[in-house]
Design a protein around this nucleic acid. Structure first.
Length: 281
DNA sequence: AGTTAAACCTGGTTGC
DNA sequence: TGCAACCAGGTTTAAC
């Protein structure tokens, strides 16, 4: 499910309610991508701080109760929603279903991860800048809404890449946040062919692509993300972006901009949707 | 080094 | 109706 907008919608839904909540218990379901990395009991009594997002990861800081400015005790949970994960904040929490694989029970509700495909992850790390979290985040590129990330730096990074621009966007080593839906949509909005080599994109077109990516992600965020199958926000509400997608999932239909036919092709073992009429190499 | 395939899983849809 | 094949929002790991 989740690309940056869906993860950010999730973060915004849980950050306020969980702030300063004390952990009462952990419940584990079937295995996720990695083991938790600590005994579940070790989290009892820890208190949640401000939930952060890095790329498509969520970071839930946890510190010892009554730990004012003293010890650097604690760490946090690094969470990823994988392909089919979503978080819900439940109060009270009903009995877990067959795809509910992680519960963080707090005094202010239960944060529950539902993930049918189990590509998601919940990982304890003593710090965001320490293993095992650090090596996972180290490969990530710039945050798309970071004001320090400019068209010039985007263009410079693209110059180092010989892969198709669609693959570069998906890879997340230049800029994070775009998954298959928003990579397709941003490229369409920018009028760039998905198979164009990244290092052949001119400075003006790179600027246009960065602007298109930001607009696409911001619009999706405003619409609560995309719900293709099973994504929902923490209150169970579906996103609406998929209803306004220009190319994603629209193979064979008319391009909303030029009237051409939207094509589907497989690129790096992922479906790419684009319009050959108005997306140029 | 850098790109491409395989792997991790389940479930829904499509087609014979 | 049954069943096989294919498809799906992601990322790591192994193989060219």
């Amino acid at each position: 499910m989740p690309e940056l907008p869906e993860v950010e919608v999730t973060r915004q839904g849980i950050a306020g309610p969980l702030k300063a909540a004390r952990v009462l218990a952990i419940r584990l379901g079937k295995p996720l991508r990695w083991p938790l990395g600590c005994p579940p009991d070790a989290l009892h009594g820890l208190v949640l701080g401000d939930v952060e997002r890095r790329g498509k990861y969520l970071w839930l800081p946890l510190h010892a109760a009554g730990d004012g400015a003293g010890r650097a005790a604690g760490g946090g949970l690094l969470m990823h929603l994988g392909m089919s994960g979503s978080l819900a904040l439940l109060q009270p929490a009903p009995p877990p279903g067959p795809h509910d694989h992680f519960d963080l029970v707090t005094e202010r509700g239960t944060l529950r991860l539902n993930d049918p495909r189990r590509f998601g992850a919940v990982l304890w790390s003593p710090g965001l800048d320490l293993p095992p979290a650090a090596p996972l985040l180290a490969r990530l590129g710039a945050e798309p809404f970071d004001l320090g990330f400019t068209a010039a730096s985007f263009h410079a990074a693209l110059q180092q890449r010989g892969a198709p621009i669609k693959a570069v966007l998906l890879g997340g080593q230049v800029v994070v946040g775009a998954g298959n839906i928003y990579a397709c949509e941003a490229l369409h909005a920018a009028g760039i062919h998905p198979a164009l080599r990244a290092d052949r994109i001119s400075r003006p077109r790179a600027a246009r692509l960065l602007a298109a990516l930001r607009e696409t992600l911001a619009r999706a965020l405003a619409l609560g993300g995309s719900t293709l199958r099973d994504f929902s926000d923490v209150h169970g509400a579906a996103g609406a972006f998929q209803q306004v997608a220009a190319v994603y999932g629209r193979a064979g239909q008319a391009c909303v901009r030029c009237g051409g036919t939207v094509q589907r092709r497989v690129q790096g073992q992922r479906s790419t949707f684009f319009c050959a009429g108005c997306q140029r190499r």
